[in-house]
Design a protein around this nucleic acid. Structure first.
Lengths: 221, 221
DNA sequence: GCGTGTGAAAATCTTCACAGCG
DNA sequence: CGCTGTGAAGATTTTCACACGC
C-alpha cells in the first residue's frame, strides 16, 4: 500500500492527530543518530502506548521489520509524506494585535514547510506597519496571495468580533485550512477545515480536573 | 443530583472538553439579555449537535425545562460550578521568551478567575526584568507561591529543552495542573494533569486535511 | 404541543493478545 | 527469538428516536 493510497483511504482522525508527535520524536532520534527504534521506545518518546503506535502506523502501511523495529529515517519520511509535508504550505496571519504580532515573531512556523508569506489586518491604521520585518497588508490582497503564491493556510488572530469576517475573507479567496485562535465558533463551507486553539478552554479543562481531584480527595482521602 | 455529586462521578472527558464552549455561548447570550435558550439554539452557537449538547448537560444534572428550554443564567452558573470556576485559579507563567512575554501581556487569562500571579524564568539574566508590569522571579519562588498564594496552574512557555525541568519544579512545588506550550511530552506523576497546546501539531493536522482534500479531488473530481 | 432527558443503537477509538515473519 | 502487524474484544463517544413532563 503506497502512502498516497493510505492517505486517500481513511486514516482515523485520532491517529492523524498523533502523527505529528511521532514525527517529532523521530526527528529527535535522527538528530541523535539513532538509526532504528522499536514501537515500545518510540511510543514512550511520543507519550502513547506501543499498541496504539503500531495501530496508527498500520494505517499508513507496513514500514517496520518484525523482530527488529522501524528505520528512523524511513519512518519519518513516510509520516511526513502521509501528512502532506513534502509540499510547501504558505501561511498568512490575519489580525495584528498582541497575539498576531507574537505569532508573526514566532519561529516555530518555519519548520516543516510552513512559511509565513503575509501578515494582514482589516484596520487601515495598522496596514503598512512593520511587524517582524514584514509590512502589514490589507485584506484585499488575499485573492492575489492565493493565486500567485499558493496561500493555503490562514491563521486567525483577530479579536472574537472580527474572526468570522476574517474567516469569510480567507474562504472567499480560496483558503481551505484555517487555524483559529479567536474564541468563537466559525461557520465555514464543509470543504474547509478549521482547527481551534483556545487558551481559555484549556485552562477551564484544567480547572475541572484540579477541582475534581480536590473533591475526590475530600470524599476518599 | 447536585453539581458536586455530578463532578465527583465521571463526566466523560469528551463532554468536559465541550463545557467551556457552552459556557462561552451562554455568556454571549446573557450579554444580549437572552433569558432562555433551546438545546437546538445553544448547540448551533457552540458548534455541536443538539443531541450531543443535551447528553453532555445530562451528565451535570437536569437543568432544563421540557417543552421550553434552558434558563441562560442558571445553566451558565451550573456549568461554571461543574468546571470549578467558582473558585479562584492562580496561574504562573514559566519561561519569559517571546511566547512567555506574549502570554503575560495577553488579557484572556483575566476572565473566569484565572489570575496570573507570577512570571518566572530560570535564567538569572532574565530574573528581575519587568514584563507586562510584573517583575520576573526565579524558579525558587515557586514553593512560596503555592503555599502563600495558592498557585494552582503552571503554564510552560520555555524552549523544549527546558520544559521538563520547568515542569519538575512546578510539580515539586505542589502544582497539579500544567498547560504546556513546549513541543515535548512531559513526564509527570499520575495525579498531575497536563494539557498541551502546540501550533506546529495543529498546522500539520491542517496540512493532512488540505493534502487529503487535494488527493480526493484528483481521484474523483 | 414542544423540547428535554435518556435508553439503546451505531460509530469510533483503544487495548489485548497472538499469529506471522524476519 | 523478538517485535511488528492485526483481527477481535472492550471502552468510549456520538447519534438516534421517543417517552416524559411542563
Amino acid at each position: 500500500m503506497s502512502t498516497a493510497e493510505a492517505a486517500r483511504r481513511g486514516v482515523p482522525d485520532a491517529a492523524v492527530a498523533r502523527l505529528p508527535g511521532y514525527l517529532r520524536a523521530l526527528t529527535a532520534l535522527a538528530a541523535d543518530d539513532v538509526a532504528s527504534v522499536s514501537s515500545e521506545e518510540l511510543a514512550a518518546a511520543a507519550g502513547v502506548s506501543s499498541a496504539m503506535l503500531r495501530k496508527d502506523l498500520s494505517y499508513l502501511g507496513s514500514y517496520g521489520v518484525r523482530g527488529v523495529g522501524y528505520d528512523v529515517e524511513r519512518l519519518a519520511s513516510e509520516i511526513a509524506a502521509a501528512l502532506g509535508l513534502t509540499q510547501d504550505w504558505p501561511v498568512a496571519i490575519v489580525g495584528m494585535g498582541n497575539l498576531g504580532r507574537a505569532l508573526a515573531a514566532y519561529r516555530g512556523f518555519a519548520e516543516r514547510g510552513f512559511r509565513v508569506i503575509a501578515l494582514l489586518d482589516h484596520d487601515e491604521r495598522v496596514v503598512g506597519d512593520e511587524v517582524a520585518g514584514e509590512t502589514v497588508r490589507p485584506m484585499e490582497d488575499l485573492p492575489r496571495l492565493v493565486e500567485e503564491q499558493g496561500l493555503a493556510i490562514g491563521v486567525i488572530a483577530t479579536p472574537p468580533e472580527g474572526a468570522q469576517a476574517a474567516c469569510d475573507h480567507l474562504v472567499a479567496a480560496g483558503v481551505r485550512s484555517v487555524l483559529n485562535f479567536a474564541a468563537v465558533v466559525l461557520a465555514v463551507p464543509e470543504d474547509v477545515t478549521v482547527r481551534k486553539v483556545d487558551l481559555s478552554t484549556e485552562l477551564q479543562i484544567l480547572a475541572f480536573h484540579g477541582h475534581r481531584g480536590a473533591l475526590a480527595e475530600a470524599v476518599a482521602p
